[in-house]
Design a protein around this nucleic acid. Sequence first.
DNA 1: ACCGGAGCCTGTTAGC
DNA 2: TGCTAACAGGCTCCGG
Length: 270
Amino acid sequence: MPELPEVETTVRALRRPLVSQVIVDVRNDWPSHIVTPTLPEMQRRIRGRRVETIDRRGKYLLFSLSGGETLIIHLKMTGHLSVVPADTPPDKHDHTVFVLADGEELRFQDTRKFGRVYLVQDKQQVLGALGPEPLAAAFTAESLHERLQHRKRVLKPLLLDQTFVAGIGNIYADEALYYARLHPQRMSHSLAKIESQALYAGIQETLKLGIAREGASIDNYRKPDGSKGDMQNTVMVYGRAGEPCLRCGRPVERIVLGGRSTHFCPNCQK
DNA sequence: ACCGGAGCCTGTTAGC
DNA sequence: TGCTAACAGGCTCCGG
């Protein structure tokens, strides 16, 4: 499941093959994949546009196009993007395909069809509600502490709330809480400053590690070239229910919070 | 302001 | 062995 490090890895891998390429058409066989505009209008507005830059905001990929519009893609659960020669045999889960002028295609493969595509003039229309970027300079331990104090929410679901912090998903939320030695059911406003600082460090360290390892291929995630990331070999608690905590040896526990599986060490995390 | 549940999907896995 | 049912999970919407 692509989270910030997986999306960042995808963005970095797509820049070389895609930046400065001209899009000549769009194909789609699953209408709800494209949120806005309609397919005919997207085709009209995107034809002849050049990809100028590729960036990331939270878990969204942003393709800035000549003419000022932005193509935005969210991979959700099973989305995968790759640039391949147009004669590459199609996969049955390729649902939106951008045809490029050089004979290649940007293919959005998405088994569970949760992914979403937008073409907008104003990217704030899609990104406007997102919280701060966790790896940006403006996001500090102090500002995190402040934001935690102003909410009365269970820590784990709050970390998954994209309006609170952008980009953290189920894996990195569990890992960050483990790193910070904080119980996932702690209330946000109960954190002492030193605990907020630990959470800040946990978020930073786990996300940076995830990027350095080029993502976690625990489930479906693959890099654009189809290869796996390495982060799955470094997870401390996620998916390790019943296995010994790597710090104290007691079994890792699994509970459900906010409808999400949550893994933690009841001995190390208070 | 916050919480819980339904819905969107389909490949995988647990259970019979 | 073969089949069905439950499950996973990011995000939005709805009602409490």
